[in-house]
Amino acid sequence: MSDPILVTENLEKRFGGVVAASEISLSLYPGETLAVIGSNGAGKTTFVNMVTGYLKPSSGTIRFRGRDITGSSPRKTAQAGIRRSFQISQIFPQLTVLENVMIAEIAAADGKGGLRRAALTDARMQTGRAVLDRFGLGQHSDTAVGTLPQGIKKQLDIAMAAINDPALILLDEPTSGVSSDEKIEMMERVIAPLKADDATLLFIEHDMDIVTRFAERTVAFYEGKILADGPTREVLSEDDVRKYVIGGVHA
């Protein structure tokens, strides 16, 4: 197996006396799709927040492509090639769908001196439209984002995370807020273009059907610790996982 793209060792996050995550040691390999499951408060989002530099771990280390990125910032990790989407879509509501994607492209150009140059080049507009087409958002490109349904907003949020070919994409509950009969369809729409770019994917999910269908490997979190880590089917059939994670999921 090739070298892991992301390695975390003994990550721990305490908020005062509350331990939100501890002993998180995890390796992600290039090209794999990994699901993170666990009930609310199990430390899933805390983990994503630490990897992207939003939260500074209390102890432990994070290495991305062999480089130590512990305690970095969201901007630095984004520039290094880690992107994320959000449980509640984080987009620019006053702008149109295409403009949102353009912002993502321009932002990616920052740090390379790209802010000085004309932003709306034909090439960039074309990339933007192509991204929207790949994510099935083409017909909405000129609609103001604020007026769109939740599912489309989440799709856009993910499309923006995929701009500039990141090596690792973390999706925080991509299907939350989407009606249950649309969840699988929506995942298919976003996973296919992400996989086409060979990105390594990690997604947090509560729906076990989706986990089984889309993730080769699953990590189960429980009370801030890793309860199980392995091939999805094995993890989902473990007694502890069934008892503590799946049983409590829909609470």
């Binding site: 910032s73 984004a78 912002i103 932002a107």
Partner: peptide, 8 residues
Amino acid sequence: RLEYLGAS
């Protein structure tokens, strides 16, 4: 979000 997209 802008930070998360890599801009300052």
